[in-house]
Amino acid sequence: MSSESHVAGHGAEPSFRQHHFINAEQQFDTSKLGMWLFLATEILMFGGLFVGYGLMQSVYPEAWVAGHHHLDRIMGAVNTVFLLCSSFTMVMAVHAASQSEKAKTVRYLLGTLVFAAGFLVIKYFEYSHKFHDGLLPGTHFSYHGGGPPQQAMFFGFYFAMTGLHGFHVVVGMALITWIMLRAMRGEFSSAYYTPVDLVGLYWHLVDLIWIYLFPLLYLVS
């Protein structure tokens, strides 16, 4: 591709600006707008599962109560704390990047990764516990403790929702690792930290979804 020198009046343009933007600010605002549009699609996609979950809860309230008794509130609460803390370290990383503080940025991103990993470890223990008890979705449901048969559907939603969320956590960790490596190479400064900001937005959305998943799955009684 050609460089950006053909726009008159911008002699010393930074290397990150793409040729079809007039200036860096326009590029930054556009990237953020695009990210928010992407987040809107994520909200609608997860929303579909929430809608299905809510409707089926209104049809089978007993099965939902019985199903949620198999979930560990403490583990869920600890995971909530992990994700909230990871959101905090993420926003601090964005802030540090916007102040050109390379070491701090990397440190906060590393912190975010640690909290995210903690979340996944707890999720692993929760899942293996469910597998062990036969609390599996649909026709694989083999729990012998009794209760309404529609618990199988509850666990269908449980695994679909937490599974899709967990997938987003893993993707988020990969993205955070990627921007951490870029931050270590010193690619970000107060003039350009868009990728940190965008990954931050994505990560907060993952947190936001968990903020709703936690009470709806673990705390309904």
């Binding site: 605002d29 953020k32 707008l33 928010w36 549009l37 987040l39 809107a40 699609t41 909200i43 609608l44 929303g47 959101s87 905090f88 993420m90 926003v91 931050g200 937005l201 907060h204 959305l205 947190d207 936001l208 903020i211």
Partner: peptide, 22 residues
Amino acid sequence: VALFFMHLRHDPPVNAIIFVTS
């Protein structure tokens, strides 16, 4: 989270409009 961590407080309003619309 949306107002502070996701900076909607200081962003151009269009981002908040997208969020609320969804």
